[in-house]
Amino acid sequence: MDWDLFWTSLGPIALGGLTGTIPLALSSFAVGLVIALFVALARISGIKILSALARFYISVIRGTPLLVQLFVIFYGLPSIGIVLDPWPSAIIAFSLNVGGYAAEVIRAAILSVPQGQWEAGYMVGMSRSVSLRRIILPQAARVSVPPLSNTFISLVKDTSLASLILVTELFREAQQVAAFSQQFMLLFLEAALVYWVICLVLSTVQSRVEKRLDRYVAH
């Protein structure tokens, strides 16, 4: 094992994580959650056309590979005159992807809040939208923490696909050092190790948050 190479390449790989993987995952997740919330609300709105559109969107996202979605946006759109840089392409693709998966999580979480909570909101005089905002969504948010954490952890790993559309992130850094040094086994294992450490940290945070939130949910 070439420990010198391991240590000298850890710098660029970790930097790729800090300036590529993590910001890409965080921004896509944030945008994705906003999309997901609206799609989930459309699904349960009771308005036929809205819920059909939402179902169609979710079905397309979940029924097609993420890599293909990424390629359609980065390599496909230019042929209809829309040329996007790697970063925006990646953020759009990952956000839309998270939007599709998290929408179902949020929808299930909203439906898991007992009907009596809506009624208590109405009873104190709230409209449907105020009850949703002040009573239902805070409880749904707590229920969604575990599944959404899983979505986020998957996303962190999935961002490695962005290396294929030339985004400088963790895995692309590893690939570049590997191509230069021809030490493929070392560099790819090293990349795996860094992903693993990131995910371990995230899982620890996740279980702490879950323990604290569980108590405030109507059972």
């Binding site: 009624e119 208590a120 009873m123 002040r134 009573i135 707590r142 949910v217």
Partner: peptide, 26 residues
């Protein structure tokens, strides 16, 4: 105003917040 069989308190709000929610927000 209604008192429910299963209380239906807001689990994410304190006792005081449960009581003041309607008067303050609505």
């Amino acid at each position: 105003a209604m008192v429910f069989q299963h209380y239906n308190l807001f689990p994410h709000k304190t006792v005081l917040e449960n009581v003041t929610e309607g008067p303050l927000v609505v």
